[in-house]
């Protein structure tokens, strides 16, 4: 696998993502500066990492979404390239309209940094095909703006189209308000685009890719991508 990890001013999870990609699936990984309008040749995956791009000024991800590199990321996604946005990267994807919705301040109005559990709602995406249906994954979240929002009509369409990939849940997969850390509509923690090649999620798989970090469930995402590409992208 050849992957590029985008670095915006204020990104801070880029090196963790590179480490996870290299150690779990031996991916050939490089960084991609936000000012570049060309992508490296023959890449399979672009990761938009977590952090505080542009200091979270104006709206989280708003300014990063309008950088030269994002034009190239959009072209890459339109051709079917795999794009993964984690935390701030998810916010960049919604702000750039590559994914629907908006991400608002947590209901508690506090920064939440802790481990949480999410349920895998789809196992037919390139990002989750190595998971079991309804498998519960433990990964940390670390955000102040993580409440996934979409207007009523659009959220029912999103659900009908099965675009929700991860939902916050209890240890046994229970979906209820007590296991919704940030007030996201319908416990949504991660979604995909219509074509299934662009995914955004708030939890950090790169911070849970080795047992020594408390959980290696996040490695399932890197492994899924690896399997998907080995099979020729099907």
């Amino acid at each position: 696998m050849r992957a590029a990890v985008v670095v915006f001013p204020g990104s801070n999870c880029d090196r963790d993502v590179i480490h996870a990609l290299r150690t779990t699936v031996s991916a050939d990984t490089e960084t991609l500066w936000y000012e570049s309008s060309d992508l490296p040749k023959n890449i399979d995956l672009i990761v938009l990492p977590g952090g505080f791009s542009y200091g979270d000024y104006l709206r989280c991800g708003a300014m990063a979404a309008r950088t030269p590199v994002m034009k190239a990321v959009r072209r890459f996604a339109e051709k079917g390239g795999l794009v993964l946005g984690i935390c701030n990267g998810f916010q960049v994807l919604t702000e750039s309209r590559l994914l629907p919705g908006a991400i608002l301040a947590n209901q508690s109005l506090t920064f939440i940094c802790r481990s949480c559990t999410v349920r895998v709602e789809r196992t037919d995406t390139p990002f989750t095909l190595g998971c079991r249906e309804n498998q519960v994954l433990e990964m940390p979240i670390a955000h102040h703006e993580g409440l996934y929002f979409l207007p009523d009509e659009e959220i029912s369409r999103l659900k009908k189209e099965k675009r929700v990939v991860f939902r916050y849940c209890g240890p046994d997969g229970e979906l209820d308000d007590s296991h919704n850390p940030n007030g996201s509509l319908d416990n949504i923690a991660g979604i995909v685009n219509e074509r299934g090649n662009v995914m955004g999620l708030m939890p950090h798989p790169e911070r849970a890719s080795e047992k020594i970090l408390g959980s290696d469930d996040g490695a399932l995402i890197w492994n899924s991508l690896h399997i998907w590409l080995e099979k020729g992208g099907r």
Partner: peptide, 10 residues
């Protein structure tokens, strides 16, 4: 209107 204004509420 209709978008949860958590700051306003607090």
């Amino acid at each position: 209107e209709g978008v949860l204004d958590t700051q306003g509420k607090a």
